[in-house]
Computed example of a mutant assay.
Amino acid sequence: MPDRTSLLRFGLIGTVIVALCCFTPVLVILLGAVGLSALLGWLDYVLLPALAVFIGITFYALWRRHAAR
C-alpha cells in the first residue's frame, strides 16, 4: 500500500489530467490529429467514471491523512 503522500499525489494528478480531458477539448483535438476520432463517442463512458475514481482516491487519501493526526 502506498504511503499517504504518494496516494494523495496520485489522486490529485489523476483528477487534474482526467478533468482536463473531460472539460476541455484536449483529448478531442489529440484524437482527431492522430486519426482516431471514431473513439470520441466512447470518451464519456471512460472519462467520467475515471474522474469519479480519481476524486474518490483523493478524498480517501485526505481522509487517511486527517485520521493519522
Results as ranks from 00 to 15, higher is better:
residue 30 L to V: 15
residue 8 L to V: 10
residue 38 A to R: 14
residue 30 L to W: 15
residue 18 V to W: 03
residue 1 M to L: 11
residue 34 V to G: 01
residue 16 V to I: 15
residue 64 R to L: 12
residue 65 R to Y: 13
residue 66 H to V: 07
residue 5 T to Q: 14
residue 24 T to S: 10
residue 67 A to L: 10
residue 4 R to V: 04
residue 9 R to K: 13
residue 59 F to T: 04
residue 13 I to G: 02
residue 21 C to G: 05
residue 4 R to K: 10
residue 56 G to L: 05
residue 57 I to E: 07
residue 46 V to P: 02
residue 18 V to Q: 07
residue 37 S to I: 00
residue 8 L to G: 02
residue 8 L to K: 09
residue 35 G to S: 10
residue 41 G to Q: 06
residue 37 S to R: 09
residue 56 G to Y: 09
residue 34 V to K: 05
residue 56 G to P: 02
residue 68 A to Q: 11
residue 25 P to N: 14
residue 63 W to P: 00
residue 43 L to E: 08
residue 26 V to S: 12
residue 57 I to P: 01
residue 19 A to H: 05
residue 64 R to Q: 10
residue 35 G to Y: 03
residue 9 R to T: 11
residue 51 L to E: 07
residue 22 C to H: 06
residue 22 C to W: 05
residue 28 V to Y: 14
residue 1 M to C: 09
residue 35 G to H: 08
residue 11 G to A: 06
residue 32 G to S: 13
residue 63 W to L: 04
residue 58 T to A: 11
residue 66 H to F: 09
residue 49 P to E: 02
residue 26 V to E: 05
residue 43 L to R: 09
residue 54 F to L: 02
residue 51 L to M: 13
residue 11 G to T: 03
residue 47 L to R: 04
residue 7 L to Q: 13
residue 21 C to L: 11
residue 53 V to E: 07
residue 18 V to L: 03
residue 31 L to Q: 07
residue 5 T to S: 14
residue 15 T to E: 10
residue 32 G to H: 06
residue 21 C to R: 00
residue 41 G to I: 04
residue 67 A to I: 00
residue 29 I to Q: 13
residue 9 R to L: 13
residue 39 L to S: 13
residue 66 H to W: 13
residue 1 M to V: 08
residue 53 V to R: 02
residue 30 L to M: 15
residue 6 S to F: 10
residue 12 L to Q: 05
residue 1 M to K: 10
residue 64 R to V: 06
residue 40 L to R: 14
residue 41 G to N: 09
residue 6 S to P: 00
residue 44 D to C: 03
residue 40 L to Y: 01
residue 23 F to T: 02
residue 50 A to V: 01
residue 3 D to L: 02
residue 16 V to K: 00
residue 27 L to I: 14
residue 41 G to F: 08
residue 22 C to I: 14
residue 65 R to M: 12
residue 45 Y to V: 06
residue 35 G to D: 04
residue 1 M to Y: 11
residue 31 L to V: 03
residue 25 P to C: 02
residue 65 R to D: 06
residue 34 V to Y: 08
residue 22 C to D: 10
residue 11 G to Q: 06
residue 56 G to W: 09
residue 23 F to W: 15
residue 22 C to S: 14
residue 13 I to T: 13
residue 62 L to V: 11
residue 4 R to M: 06
residue 67 A to R: 15
residue 2 P to F: 09
residue 13 I to A: 13
residue 33 A to C: 09
residue 2 P to K: 11
residue 21 C to S: 08
residue 24 T to H: 12
residue 14 G to V: 01
residue 23 F to V: 02
residue 40 L to M: 14
residue 37 S to L: 03
residue 41 G to C: 08
residue 47 L to S: 10
residue 63 W to H: 12
residue 62 L to N: 01
residue 49 P to L: 08
residue 34 V to Q: 08
residue 33 A to K: 11
residue 47 L to V: 09
residue 18 V to S: 04
residue 12 L to Y: 03
residue 1 M to N: 09
residue 18 V to P: 02
residue 59 F to E: 09
residue 68 A to T: 10
residue 8 L to C: 07
residue 64 R to A: 11
residue 6 S to K: 11
residue 63 W to I: 06
residue 61 A to F: 02
residue 49 P to C: 07
residue 14 G to A: 04
residue 3 D to M: 00
residue 58 T to S: 15
residue 30 L to D: 13
residue 16 V to A: 15
residue 26 V to A: 15
residue 7 L to P: 00
residue 48 L to E: 04
residue 49 P to S: 05
